[in-house]
Design a protein around this nucleic acid. Structure first.
Length: 516
DNA sequence: CGCTTTTGACCGGCGC
DNA sequence: GCGCCGGTCAAAAGCG
Protein backbone atom coordinates (compact mmCIF):
# COMPACT_ATOMS: atom_id res chain seq x y z
CA UNK A 1 0.00 0.00 0.00
CA UNK A 2 2.92 2.23 0.42
CA UNK A 3 4.50 1.68 -2.86
CA UNK A 4 1.53 2.34 -5.06
CA UNK A 5 1.22 5.71 -3.53
CA UNK A 6 4.81 6.36 -4.19
CA UNK A 7 4.23 5.23 -7.65
CA UNK A 8 1.48 7.68 -7.89
CA UNK A 9 3.72 10.47 -6.93
CA UNK A 10 6.29 9.45 -9.37
CA UNK A 11 3.82 8.88 -12.01
CA UNK A 12 2.76 12.40 -11.93
CA UNK A 13 6.08 13.43 -13.19
CA UNK A 14 6.48 15.26 -16.41
CA UNK A 15 7.76 12.33 -18.29
CA UNK A 16 4.72 10.25 -18.45
CA UNK A 17 3.10 12.03 -21.25
CA UNK A 18 2.96 10.78 -24.80
CA UNK A 19 3.53 7.24 -24.04
CA UNK A 20 1.48 5.38 -26.55
CA UNK A 21 2.12 1.86 -25.82
CA UNK A 22 3.77 2.52 -22.62
CA UNK A 23 1.65 0.27 -20.60
CA UNK A 24 2.44 -2.62 -22.79
CA UNK A 25 6.17 -2.73 -22.48
CA UNK A 26 6.10 -1.39 -19.03
CA UNK A 27 5.50 -4.66 -17.48
CA UNK A 28 8.65 -6.23 -18.75
CA UNK A 29 11.36 -7.63 -16.61
CA UNK A 30 12.26 -5.09 -14.06
CA UNK A 31 14.90 -5.12 -11.54
CA UNK A 32 17.56 -6.62 -13.72
CA UNK A 33 20.59 -4.70 -14.77
CA UNK A 34 19.29 -3.83 -18.16
CA UNK A 35 16.94 -1.25 -16.91
CA UNK A 36 19.80 0.89 -15.82
CA UNK A 37 20.74 1.47 -19.40
CA UNK A 38 17.22 2.38 -20.18
CA UNK A 39 17.55 5.49 -18.15
CA UNK A 40 19.10 7.04 -21.18
CA UNK A 41 16.47 5.86 -23.50
CA UNK A 42 13.41 7.71 -24.52
CA UNK A 43 11.36 5.60 -22.25
CA UNK A 44 13.17 6.84 -19.26
CA UNK A 45 10.11 7.96 -17.59
CA UNK A 46 8.70 4.52 -17.62
CA UNK A 47 11.74 3.02 -16.14
CA UNK A 48 11.91 5.65 -13.54
CA UNK A 49 8.48 4.82 -12.53
CA UNK A 50 9.21 1.16 -12.70
CA UNK A 51 12.36 1.51 -10.74
CA UNK A 52 10.40 2.90 -7.92
CA UNK A 53 7.78 0.28 -8.19
CA UNK A 54 9.38 -2.74 -9.61
CA UNK A 55 6.78 -5.13 -8.42
CA UNK A 56 3.77 -5.44 -10.63
CA UNK A 57 4.27 -2.38 -12.66
CA UNK A 58 1.45 -3.33 -14.88
CA UNK A 59 -0.90 -3.59 -12.00
CA UNK A 60 -0.66 0.05 -11.52
CA UNK A 61 -1.70 2.03 -14.46
CA UNK A 62 -3.45 5.10 -13.26
CA UNK A 63 -3.11 6.68 -16.60
CA UNK A 64 -3.76 4.92 -19.82
CA UNK A 65 -1.13 5.01 -22.48
CA UNK A 66 -0.82 8.30 -24.15
CA UNK A 67 -2.52 9.96 -21.34
CA UNK A 68 -0.90 13.20 -20.47
CA UNK A 69 0.12 13.62 -16.95
CA UNK A 70 0.81 16.55 -14.81
CA UNK A 71 4.13 17.45 -13.45
CA UNK A 72 3.48 17.92 -9.84
CA UNK A 73 7.03 18.61 -9.10
CA UNK A 74 7.62 15.48 -7.15
CA UNK A 75 10.81 14.51 -8.76
CA UNK A 76 12.77 13.85 -5.73
CA UNK A 77 12.62 10.15 -5.89
CA UNK A 78 12.75 9.95 -9.56
CA UNK A 79 15.82 12.03 -9.88
CA UNK A 80 17.36 10.38 -7.00
CA UNK A 81 16.92 6.97 -8.37
CA UNK A 82 17.97 8.12 -11.75
CA UNK A 83 21.08 9.70 -10.45
CA UNK A 84 22.00 6.67 -8.55
CA UNK A 85 21.78 4.57 -11.62
CA UNK A 86 23.65 6.77 -13.94
CA UNK A 87 27.17 6.16 -12.73
CA UNK A 88 26.71 2.49 -13.02
CA UNK A 89 25.76 2.81 -16.62
CA UNK A 90 28.66 4.97 -17.42
CA UNK A 91 30.90 2.58 -15.67
CA UNK A 92 29.55 -0.19 -17.75
CA UNK A 93 30.40 1.71 -20.86
CA UNK A 94 33.86 2.30 -19.65
CA UNK A 95 34.39 -1.25 -18.63
CA UNK A 96 33.29 -2.43 -21.99
CA UNK A 97 35.74 -0.21 -23.84
CA UNK A 98 38.97 -0.98 -22.12
CA UNK A 99 39.86 -4.56 -21.54
CA UNK A 100 43.39 -3.75 -20.51
CA UNK A 101 42.12 -2.25 -17.37
CA UNK A 102 39.84 -5.13 -16.64
CA UNK A 103 41.18 -5.71 -13.21
CA UNK A 104 40.88 -2.16 -12.11
CA UNK A 105 37.60 -1.91 -13.86
CA UNK A 106 36.28 -4.96 -12.18
CA UNK A 107 37.29 -3.62 -8.85
CA UNK A 108 35.70 -0.36 -9.80
CA UNK A 109 32.67 -2.24 -10.88
CA UNK A 110 32.48 -3.93 -7.55
CA UNK A 111 32.89 -0.66 -5.78
CA UNK A 112 30.32 0.94 -7.93
CA UNK A 113 28.01 -1.95 -7.43
CA UNK A 114 28.37 -1.51 -3.73
CA UNK A 115 27.78 2.16 -4.14
CA UNK A 116 24.80 1.41 -6.23
CA UNK A 117 23.43 -0.82 -3.59
CA UNK A 118 24.06 1.76 -0.98
CA UNK A 119 22.34 4.40 -3.04
CA UNK A 120 19.52 2.06 -3.63
CA UNK A 121 19.09 1.55 0.04
CA UNK A 122 19.28 5.23 0.59
CA UNK A 123 16.77 5.75 -2.08
CA UNK A 124 14.44 3.34 -0.45
CA UNK A 125 14.90 5.04 2.84
CA UNK A 126 14.19 8.37 1.28
CA UNK A 127 11.11 7.01 -0.30
CA UNK A 128 9.99 5.62 2.96
CA UNK A 129 10.66 8.87 4.64
CA UNK A 130 8.77 10.72 2.00
CA UNK A 131 5.86 8.40 2.35
CA UNK A 132 5.92 8.79 6.04
CA UNK A 133 6.10 12.53 5.81
CA UNK A 134 3.31 12.61 3.35
CA UNK A 135 1.22 10.45 5.56
CA UNK A 136 1.85 12.50 8.61
CA UNK A 137 1.26 15.66 6.76
CA UNK A 138 -1.99 14.54 5.31
CA UNK A 139 -3.09 13.19 8.64
CA UNK A 140 -2.46 16.51 10.21
CA UNK A 141 -4.28 18.20 7.42
CA UNK A 142 -7.21 15.94 7.92
CA UNK A 143 -7.30 16.56 11.60
CA UNK A 144 -7.17 20.24 11.06
CA UNK A 145 -9.94 20.17 8.57
CA UNK A 146 -11.93 18.00 10.88
CA UNK A 147 -11.44 20.37 13.68
CA UNK A 148 -12.57 23.13 11.45
CA UNK A 149 -15.63 21.25 10.48
CA UNK A 150 -16.38 20.34 14.00
CA UNK A 151 -16.10 23.91 14.98
CA UNK A 152 -18.46 24.95 12.27
CA UNK A 153 -20.88 22.20 13.10
CA UNK A 154 -20.84 22.99 16.77
CA UNK A 155 -21.42 26.62 16.16
CA UNK A 156 -24.33 26.02 13.94
CA UNK A 157 -25.64 23.31 16.13
CA UNK A 158 -25.68 25.50 19.15
CA UNK A 159 -27.27 28.15 17.05
CA UNK A 160 -30.02 25.85 16.00
CA UNK A 161 -30.50 24.54 19.45
CA UNK A 162 -30.95 28.01 20.71
CA UNK A 163 -33.50 28.63 18.06
CA UNK A 164 -35.45 25.46 18.36
CA UNK A 165 -35.06 24.86 22.02
CA UNK A 166 -34.16 21.36 21.14
CA UNK A 167 -31.87 19.43 23.38
CA UNK A 168 -28.50 19.54 21.95
CA UNK A 169 -27.10 16.29 20.79
CA UNK A 170 -24.84 14.40 23.02
CA UNK A 171 -21.63 16.27 22.97
CA UNK A 172 -18.79 14.47 21.49
CA UNK A 173 -16.25 13.48 23.94
CA UNK A 174 -12.72 13.06 22.96
CA UNK A 175 -13.21 9.37 23.14
CA UNK A 176 -16.18 9.51 20.91
CA UNK A 177 -14.43 11.78 18.60
CA UNK A 178 -11.58 9.45 18.22
CA UNK A 179 -13.60 6.35 18.31
CA UNK A 180 -14.31 4.99 14.90
CA UNK A 181 -17.81 4.46 15.93
CA UNK A 182 -21.01 4.91 14.11
CA UNK A 183 -20.59 7.27 11.32
CA UNK A 184 -22.13 7.74 8.05
CA UNK A 185 -19.35 6.02 6.33
CA UNK A 186 -18.71 3.34 8.73
CA UNK A 187 -22.01 1.83 9.25
CA UNK A 188 -21.10 -0.97 7.01
CA UNK A 189 -17.50 -1.05 7.77
CA UNK A 190 -17.50 -2.15 11.28
CA UNK A 191 -17.97 -5.87 11.32
CA UNK A 192 -18.63 -5.85 14.99
CA UNK A 193 -21.69 -3.80 14.46
CA UNK A 194 -22.81 -5.05 11.14
CA UNK A 195 -21.80 -8.58 11.03
CA UNK A 196 -24.35 -9.55 8.46
CA UNK A 197 -23.30 -6.89 6.12
CA UNK A 198 -20.61 -7.11 3.62
CA UNK A 199 -17.32 -7.04 5.26
CA UNK A 200 -14.85 -4.56 4.05
CA UNK A 201 -11.64 -6.10 2.95
CA UNK A 202 -9.10 -5.52 5.55
CA UNK A 203 -6.71 -3.74 3.25
CA UNK A 204 -9.31 -1.13 2.77
CA UNK A 205 -9.69 -0.57 6.42
CA UNK A 206 -6.83 1.70 6.73
CA UNK A 207 -6.21 4.91 8.41
CA UNK A 208 -8.42 6.53 5.91
CA UNK A 209 -11.33 4.85 7.47
CA UNK A 210 -10.31 6.09 10.77
CA UNK A 211 -9.83 9.52 9.46
CA UNK A 212 -13.17 9.49 7.82
CA UNK A 213 -14.81 8.34 10.95
CA UNK A 214 -13.01 11.08 12.67
CA UNK A 215 -14.50 13.56 10.37
CA UNK A 216 -17.86 12.02 10.26
CA UNK A 217 -18.12 12.07 13.96
CA UNK A 218 -17.40 15.67 13.84
CA UNK A 219 -20.29 16.18 11.57
CA UNK A 220 -22.84 14.48 13.71
CA UNK A 221 -24.22 17.63 15.21
CA UNK A 222 -24.89 18.94 11.80
CA UNK A 223 -26.65 15.78 10.98
CA UNK A 224 -28.89 15.81 13.95
CA UNK A 225 -29.50 19.39 13.43
CA UNK A 226 -30.62 18.94 9.93
CA UNK A 227 -32.50 15.75 9.91
CA UNK A 228 -33.46 14.39 13.23
CA UNK A 229 -35.91 11.90 11.87
CA UNK A 230 -34.90 11.57 8.33
CA UNK A 231 -34.07 8.27 6.89
CA UNK A 232 -32.36 6.88 3.92
CA UNK A 233 -34.21 3.89 2.71
CA UNK A 234 -31.87 3.34 -0.12
CA UNK A 235 -28.84 2.87 1.95
CA UNK A 236 -27.41 -0.47 2.63
CA UNK A 237 -28.56 -0.07 6.14
CA UNK A 238 -32.21 -0.62 6.27
CA UNK A 239 -34.51 0.16 9.14
CA UNK A 240 -34.83 -3.53 9.69
CA UNK A 241 -31.20 -3.56 10.41
CA UNK A 242 -31.82 -1.15 13.19
CA UNK A 243 -34.69 -3.16 14.46
CA UNK A 244 -32.59 -6.24 14.69
CA UNK A 245 -30.00 -4.55 16.74
CA UNK A 246 -29.92 -3.79 20.35
CA UNK A 247 -31.35 -0.46 21.36
CA UNK A 248 -27.94 0.93 21.76
CA UNK A 249 -26.95 -0.30 18.40
CA UNK A 250 -30.12 0.99 16.97
CA UNK A 251 -29.37 4.30 18.47
CA UNK A 252 -25.96 4.17 17.00
CA UNK A 253 -27.55 3.18 13.83
CA UNK A 254 -29.73 6.19 13.88
CA UNK A 255 -26.69 8.21 14.49
CA UNK A 256 -25.12 6.54 11.56
CA UNK A 257 -28.03 7.29 9.40
CA UNK A 258 -28.29 10.81 10.48
CA UNK A 259 -24.62 11.18 10.01
CA UNK A 260 -24.94 9.73 6.64
CA UNK A 261 -27.68 12.10 5.94
CA UNK A 262 -25.41 14.89 6.82
CA UNK A 263 -22.91 13.37 4.53
CA UNK A 264 -25.34 13.49 1.78
CA UNK A 265 -26.91 16.77 2.52
CA UNK A 266 -24.09 18.92 1.42
CA UNK A 267 -23.40 18.79 -2.23
CA UNK A 268 -20.59 19.98 -4.32
CA UNK A 269 -21.34 20.28 -7.91
CA UNK A 270 -19.11 20.92 -10.87
CA UNK A 271 -20.11 21.93 -14.32
CA UNK A 272 -17.90 21.33 -17.27
CA UNK A 273 -18.13 20.75 -20.92
CA UNK A 274 -17.94 17.20 -21.99
CA UNK A 275 -19.13 15.09 -24.81
CA UNK A 276 -18.92 12.01 -22.74
CA UNK A 277 -22.07 10.89 -21.03
CA UNK A 278 -20.21 10.75 -17.82
CA UNK A 279 -16.88 11.95 -16.70
CA UNK A 280 -14.26 9.57 -15.66
CA UNK A 281 -13.53 10.42 -12.10
CA UNK A 282 -11.52 7.46 -11.02
CA UNK A 283 -14.27 5.63 -9.28
CA UNK A 284 -16.43 2.77 -10.32
CA UNK A 285 -20.06 3.60 -10.52
CA UNK A 286 -23.15 1.64 -11.03
CA UNK A 287 -26.19 3.22 -12.43
CA UNK A 288 -29.19 2.60 -10.33
CA UNK A 289 -31.71 4.92 -11.75
CA UNK A 290 -32.59 7.51 -14.25
CA UNK A 291 -35.22 10.11 -14.10
CA UNK A 292 -36.45 12.93 -16.14
CA UNK A 293 -35.98 15.99 -14.09
CA UNK A 294 -38.40 18.79 -14.38
CA UNK A 295 -37.20 21.63 -16.50
CA UNK A 296 -34.54 19.63 -18.21
CA UNK A 297 -35.11 17.55 -21.31
CA UNK A 298 -32.06 15.54 -20.49
CA UNK A 299 -32.52 12.70 -18.10
CA UNK A 300 -30.73 12.63 -14.83
CA UNK A 301 -28.80 9.50 -14.11
CA UNK A 302 -28.10 8.24 -10.65
CA UNK A 303 -24.94 6.38 -9.89
CA UNK A 304 -23.64 4.64 -6.86
CA UNK A 305 -20.05 3.97 -6.06
CA UNK A 306 -19.22 0.31 -6.36
CA UNK A 307 -15.60 0.42 -5.50
CA UNK A 308 -16.34 -0.88 -2.07
CA UNK A 309 -19.28 -2.49 -0.44
CA UNK A 310 -21.19 -0.05 1.60
CA UNK A 311 -19.75 2.99 -0.01
CA UNK A 312 -22.44 5.59 0.26
CA UNK A 313 -21.10 7.91 -2.36
CA UNK A 314 -23.55 8.61 -5.10
CA UNK A 315 -23.62 10.94 -7.91
CA UNK A 316 -26.01 12.40 -10.35
CA UNK A 317 -25.15 13.11 -13.90
CA UNK A 318 -27.17 15.39 -16.01
CA UNK A 319 -26.61 17.65 -18.89
CA UNK A 320 -27.32 21.26 -18.59
CA UNK A 321 -30.63 22.20 -20.07
CA UNK A 322 -29.33 25.45 -21.44
CA UNK A 323 -26.14 24.08 -22.82
CA UNK A 324 -26.13 20.41 -23.44
CA UNK A 325 -22.43 20.38 -23.87
CA UNK A 326 -22.13 21.05 -20.21
CA UNK A 327 -22.14 18.02 -18.07
CA UNK A 328 -23.16 18.42 -14.49
CA UNK A 329 -22.04 15.76 -12.15
CA UNK A 330 -23.02 15.82 -8.55
CA UNK A 331 -21.34 13.75 -5.91
CA UNK A 332 -22.73 12.95 -2.55
CA UNK A 333 -21.13 11.39 0.43
CA UNK A 334 -17.71 10.11 1.10
CA UNK A 335 -15.92 7.05 0.03
CA UNK A 336 -15.24 4.60 2.76
CA UNK A 337 -12.43 3.00 0.87
CA UNK A 338 -9.10 3.93 -0.56
CA UNK A 339 -9.23 5.75 -3.76
CA UNK A 340 -7.11 5.63 -6.83
CA UNK A 341 -5.26 8.79 -7.62
CA UNK A 342 -7.78 9.83 -10.17
CA UNK A 343 -10.52 9.48 -7.68
CA UNK A 344 -8.50 11.23 -5.10
CA UNK A 345 -8.82 14.41 -7.02
CA UNK A 346 -12.52 14.14 -6.87
CA UNK A 347 -12.50 13.34 -3.22
CA UNK A 348 -10.19 16.19 -2.48
CA UNK A 349 -12.20 18.57 -4.52
CA UNK A 350 -15.28 17.41 -2.81
CA UNK A 351 -13.73 17.79 0.53
CA UNK A 352 -12.42 21.21 -0.08
CA UNK A 353 -15.62 22.43 -1.56
CA UNK A 354 -17.71 20.84 1.10
CA UNK A 355 -15.51 22.25 3.75
CA UNK A 356 -15.88 25.63 2.31
CA UNK A 357 -19.55 25.13 1.93
CA UNK A 358 -20.04 24.08 5.47
CA UNK A 359 -17.83 26.68 6.92
CA UNK A 360 -19.37 29.37 4.84
CA UNK A 361 -22.91 28.33 5.41
CA UNK A 362 -22.64 27.58 9.06
CA UNK A 363 -20.59 29.84 11.16
CA UNK A 364 -18.42 32.00 9.10
CA UNK A 365 -15.62 31.85 6.74
CA UNK A 366 -13.29 32.39 9.58
CA UNK A 367 -13.88 28.92 10.71
CA UNK A 368 -12.05 27.91 7.70
CA UNK A 369 -9.71 30.69 7.07
CA UNK A 370 -8.32 30.99 10.48
CA UNK A 371 -7.41 27.42 11.05
CA UNK A 372 -6.00 27.14 7.63
CA UNK A 373 -3.89 30.17 7.84
CA UNK A 374 -0.94 27.98 7.83
CA UNK A 375 -1.91 26.66 4.49
CA UNK A 376 -2.16 29.90 2.76
CA UNK A 377 -0.18 29.64 -0.28
CA UNK A 378 -0.39 30.82 -3.81
CA UNK A 379 -3.03 28.86 -5.47
CA UNK A 380 -1.43 27.59 -8.59
CA UNK A 381 -4.63 26.87 -10.33
CA UNK A 382 -6.69 28.61 -12.78
CA UNK A 383 -9.82 29.88 -11.36
CA UNK A 384 -13.35 29.01 -11.99
CA UNK A 385 -16.58 29.80 -10.38
CA UNK A 386 -17.78 28.18 -7.28
CA UNK A 387 -21.32 28.82 -6.34
CA UNK A 388 -22.68 28.08 -2.98
CA UNK A 389 -26.35 27.72 -2.75
CA UNK A 390 -28.44 27.13 0.26
CA UNK A 391 -31.65 27.50 -1.60
CA UNK A 392 -31.57 23.90 -2.61
CA UNK A 393 -32.76 21.27 -0.18
CA UNK A 394 -29.14 20.57 0.46
CA UNK A 395 -26.39 23.08 0.68
CA UNK A 396 -24.72 22.86 -2.64
CA UNK A 397 -21.54 24.19 -4.00
CA UNK A 398 -21.16 24.34 -7.72
CA UNK A 399 -17.80 24.47 -9.34
CA UNK A 400 -18.17 25.87 -12.75
CA UNK A 401 -15.37 24.71 -14.96
CA UNK A 402 -17.02 25.91 -18.06
CA UNK A 403 -15.75 29.39 -17.58
CA UNK A 404 -12.53 30.34 -19.27
CA UNK A 405 -9.56 30.35 -17.00
CA UNK A 406 -8.65 33.46 -15.27
CA UNK A 407 -9.99 35.66 -12.58
CA UNK A 408 -13.63 35.32 -12.09
CA UNK A 409 -15.95 37.80 -10.68
CA UNK A 410 -17.48 36.63 -7.56
CA UNK A 411 -20.45 37.33 -5.50
CA UNK A 412 -21.17 36.29 -2.06
CA UNK A 413 -24.48 36.70 -0.50
CA UNK A 414 -24.79 35.77 3.04
CA UNK A 415 -28.46 35.25 2.75
CA UNK A 416 -28.93 31.56 3.06
CA UNK A 417 -31.88 31.53 0.79
CA UNK A 418 -29.97 32.86 -2.11
CA UNK A 419 -27.08 31.37 -3.89
CA UNK A 420 -23.82 33.04 -3.50
CA UNK A 421 -20.79 32.63 -5.55
CA UNK A 422 -17.23 32.82 -4.68
CA UNK A 423 -14.10 32.14 -6.53
CA UNK A 424 -12.91 28.67 -6.19
CA UNK A 425 -9.48 28.23 -7.57
CA UNK A 426 -9.68 25.31 -9.77
CA UNK A 427 -7.64 23.84 -12.41
CA UNK A 428 -8.93 23.94 -15.89
CA UNK A 429 -8.20 20.52 -17.11
CA UNK A 430 -9.48 21.09 -20.55
CA UNK A 431 -7.04 23.85 -21.15
CA UNK A 432 -3.82 22.42 -19.93
CA UNK A 433 -3.11 18.93 -21.02
CA UNK A 434 -0.21 17.51 -19.23
CA UNK A 435 1.43 20.63 -18.10
CA UNK A 436 2.62 21.89 -14.83
CA UNK A 437 0.11 23.71 -12.83
CA UNK A 438 0.74 27.36 -13.39
CA UNK A 439 2.08 28.74 -10.19
CA UNK A 440 1.19 31.97 -8.67
CA UNK A 441 -2.18 32.54 -10.13
CA UNK A 442 -3.57 35.01 -7.76
CA UNK A 443 -6.97 36.31 -7.15
CA UNK A 444 -5.97 39.15 -5.01
CA UNK A 445 -8.41 41.51 -6.52
CA UNK A 446 -11.18 39.24 -5.53
CA UNK A 447 -12.39 39.14 -2.03
CA UNK A 448 -9.30 37.77 -0.47
CA UNK A 449 -10.94 36.30 2.52
CA UNK A 450 -13.30 34.21 0.55
CA UNK A 451 -10.67 33.30 -1.88
CA UNK A 452 -8.40 32.35 0.90
CA UNK A 453 -11.07 30.25 2.38
CA UNK A 454 -11.47 28.22 -0.69
CA UNK A 455 -7.85 28.27 -1.45
CA UNK A 456 -6.96 27.05 1.93
CA UNK A 457 -9.58 24.42 1.83
CA UNK A 458 -8.35 23.03 -1.39
CA UNK A 459 -4.71 23.67 -1.01
CA UNK A 460 -4.73 22.27 2.45
CA UNK A 461 -4.62 18.83 1.06
CA UNK A 462 -1.06 17.96 0.28
CA UNK A 463 -2.26 15.33 -2.06
CA UNK A 464 -4.31 17.77 -3.91
CA UNK A 465 -1.79 18.41 -6.58
CA UNK A 466 -1.15 14.82 -7.26
CA UNK A 467 -4.76 13.98 -6.96
CA UNK A 468 -5.69 16.84 -9.14
CA UNK A 469 -3.20 15.73 -11.68
CA UNK A 470 -4.73 12.33 -11.63
CA UNK A 471 -8.13 13.81 -12.01
CA UNK A 472 -7.05 15.91 -14.87
CA UNK A 473 -5.53 12.97 -16.51
CA UNK A 474 -8.63 10.98 -16.01
CA UNK A 475 -10.74 13.80 -17.24
CA UNK A 476 -8.71 14.29 -20.32
CA UNK A 477 -8.74 10.62 -20.89
CA UNK A 478 -12.38 10.39 -20.13
CA UNK A 479 -13.81 7.65 -22.23
CA UNK A 480 -16.20 8.77 -24.82
CA UNK A 481 -18.07 5.63 -24.31
CA UNK A 482 -21.45 5.86 -22.90
CA UNK A 483 -20.65 4.42 -19.56
CA UNK A 484 -17.69 5.82 -17.81
CA UNK A 485 -18.84 3.69 -14.97
CA UNK A 486 -18.17 0.07 -15.12
CA UNK A 487 -16.09 0.30 -18.19
CA UNK A 488 -14.41 3.19 -16.65
CA UNK A 489 -10.81 3.24 -17.53
CA UNK A 490 -10.18 4.78 -14.23
CA UNK A 491 -11.24 1.74 -12.42
CA UNK A 492 -8.15 1.15 -10.49
CA UNK A 493 -6.20 -1.93 -11.23
CA UNK A 494 -4.94 -1.64 -7.76
CA UNK A 495 -6.31 0.41 -5.03
CA UNK A 496 -4.01 3.03 -3.81
CA UNK A 497 -4.20 4.21 -0.37
CA UNK A 498 -3.57 7.84 -0.60
CA UNK A 499 -3.44 8.79 2.97
CA UNK A 500 -5.20 11.70 4.29
CA UNK A 501 -7.52 12.20 1.49
CA UNK A 502 -10.00 14.42 3.10
CA UNK A 503 -13.25 12.83 2.43
CA UNK A 504 -15.59 14.81 4.38
CA UNK A 505 -18.81 13.15 5.01
CA UNK A 506 -20.88 15.97 3.84
CA UNK A 507 -19.12 16.32 0.65
CA UNK A 508 -20.96 16.09 -2.50
CA UNK A 509 -19.13 17.12 -5.54
CA UNK A 510 -20.54 17.90 -8.85
CA UNK A 511 -17.72 17.65 -11.22
CA UNK A 512 -18.22 18.90 -14.65
CA UNK A 513 -15.44 18.54 -17.05
CA UNK A 514 -14.60 19.54 -20.49
CA UNK A 515 -13.37 16.69 -22.52
CA UNK A 516 -13.74 18.53 -25.73
C1' DC B 1 -22.88 -16.69 -14.92
C1' DG B 2 -22.13 -12.46 -12.91
C1' DC B 3 -22.41 -7.79 -13.42
C1' DT B 4 -24.48 -3.69 -15.30
C1' DT B 5 -28.08 -1.10 -17.38
C1' DT B 6 -32.80 -0.13 -18.19
C1' DT B 7 -37.14 1.23 -16.70
C1' DG B 8 -41.44 1.19 -14.47
C1' DA B 9 -42.97 1.19 -9.78
C1' DC B 10 -42.65 2.83 -5.35
C1' DC B 11 -41.77 6.03 -1.54
C1' DG B 12 -41.31 10.29 0.94
C1' DG B 13 -41.16 15.25 1.01
C1' DC B 14 -43.39 19.32 -0.18
C1' DG B 15 -46.71 22.66 -1.77
C1' DC B 16 -51.41 23.74 -2.63
C1' DG C 1 -55.81 14.87 0.89
C1' DC C 2 -53.92 15.17 -3.49
C1' DG C 3 -50.64 15.74 -6.93
C1' DC C 4 -46.01 16.77 -8.21
C1' DC C 5 -41.34 15.78 -7.98
C1' DG C 6 -36.95 13.86 -6.70
C1' DG C 7 -34.87 9.84 -5.46
C1' DT C 8 -34.58 4.88 -5.01
C1' DC C 9 -35.78 0.07 -5.70
C1' DA C 10 -35.90 -4.05 -8.12
C1' DA C 11 -37.13 -7.09 -11.82
C1' DA C 12 -36.00 -7.77 -16.46
C1' DA C 13 -32.94 -7.35 -20.12
C1' DG C 14 -28.40 -6.80 -21.95
C1' DC C 15 -23.59 -7.76 -22.14
C1' DG C 16 -19.03 -9.83 -21.86
Amino acid sequence: MERPRRMDLLHSGDYSGNDPGGAGDRGGARGDVIQEVDFFSKSRQRDEAASCLPENPEKYSPSPPGEPSINMGLHLLTMNSGGSQQPAVEEKKNSGCSNSNSNSNSSKLVALQAELDRLGDENRKLRSMLDHLMKNYTDLQNQLLLAMQQQACKAEDSQKDNMNGMPSPVPLTAQQFMDPGPTCMQDTEDPSKSGEEEEEPSPLRNHLDHASSFKEQAIVPLTKRRLPTDNIPSEQTSPSWVANKSPKQAQERNSDQTSELACRKARVSVRARSDAPMISDGCQWRKYGQKMAKGNPCPRAYYRCTMAAGCSVRKQVQRCAEDKTILITTYEGNHNHPLPPAAMAMANTTTAAATMLLSGSTTSKDSLTNPTTGFYQPMPYASTMATLSASAPFPTITLDLTQPPGPVQLHRQQTPATPFSLPLPMYMPQKVPGMVLPPGLQFGQQQPSVMDTVTAAIASDPNFTSALAAAIKSIMAAPRSSDGTSGNSTSPPALHVVPGSPQFPQSCTTFSTNTN
